[in-house]
Design a protein around this nucleic acid. Structure first.
Ligand SMILES: [Mn+2]
Ligand SMILES: [Mn+2]
Ligand SMILES: [Zn+2]
Ligand SMILES: [Zn+2]
Lengths: 135, 135
DNA sequence: TCCTTGTTGCGAGTGATTCGCAAGTGATTG
DNA sequence: CAATCACTTGCGAATCACTCGCAACAAGGA
């Protein structure tokens, strides 16, 4: 948190109130949040932080590598600290989101690299499918 | 093509001019098309087929299992015949889209099934990463 | 304290898609 | 062949998730 603000300042940025509260909520959140949900959480502490300010801060924090976003489906993107990023399986039947441990992708990563020269980063878009309950 | 129209009729639908031309373009297309690109192709044959008609037909054809859509990135979805669906790797550096043969996903599919009870269908969202040229 | 420059609130704009509605048209019926 | 009627369409407006423009504000080094 303080390290992040130090990095922000090192890059010529300012440690504003909005920025602080947005970061606090990101550090406290246990799962990923849409920009809108984050804005609501932020507004509980700082009522007139505007949604566009949240978007702009998320943008900046992503540029700094602090935050990443993920698409879990057709809705809004979800944001979280980069250090917590992981891949997802989403059930097309019930919408359940399952966190996919990185090691599941080892084999795919190796084959994609060897056969296509491609290095995968499977965390940006979720992988759809069906959970155990939805057959 | 005729089989598809037969199926449409069997489900109570009509074989309209728009529907025919949209299907023709889908059968002729060699890669996936955005709804907008498809509308343009259609309008070359039937000038006043509206973009919203294209969206509605794609929706219906997806419900019938004839068509699927895929997200290759942040832009519009792309549509194609379900029989041609495949997974994609997209380079975050240069935007290159590489078709990913289904067998690359065998191992991941098996592990997801065994360890999480989840059956993956990796064709809906692309997998991001870096191509050989973009290191 | 002043000044510079990054930031913010707010509203308007954009891209992709979806909707409402009245007019139009396939297909079944008589 | 009509007549009928549910399915479709064109068109514009609405929606959702962002993104931008701009004038007012406020960090933080001088
Ligand atoms: Mn994204
Ligand atoms: Mn989709
Ligand atoms: Zn499920
Ligand atoms: Zn590349």
């Amino acid at each position: 948190m303080d390290d992040v603000l130090a990095l922000v300042r090192a890059r010529g940025g300012r440690a504003t109130v909005s920025r602080r509260v947005i970061l606090e909520e990101l550090f406290e959140a246990e799962d990923h949040l849409s920009a809108e949900a984050l804005a609501e959480a932020v507004q509980a502490h700082a009522p007139d932080v505007h949604l566009s300010t949240v978007y702009r801060n998320l943008e900046d924090l992503q540029r700094l590598g602090i935050v990443v976003h993920t698409h879990l489906g057709h809705g809004p993107a979800t944001y979280q600290l980069a250090s917590l990023a992981h891949a997802h399986f989403i059930c097309e039947g019930c919408g359940a989101a399952i966190e996919a441990p990185d090691e599941l992708f080892r084999g795919l990563a190796r084959m994609a690299k060897n056969r296509l020269g491609f290095s995968i980063d499977p965390r940006h878009f979720a992988i759809l499918g069906r959970c155990a309950d939805c057959v």
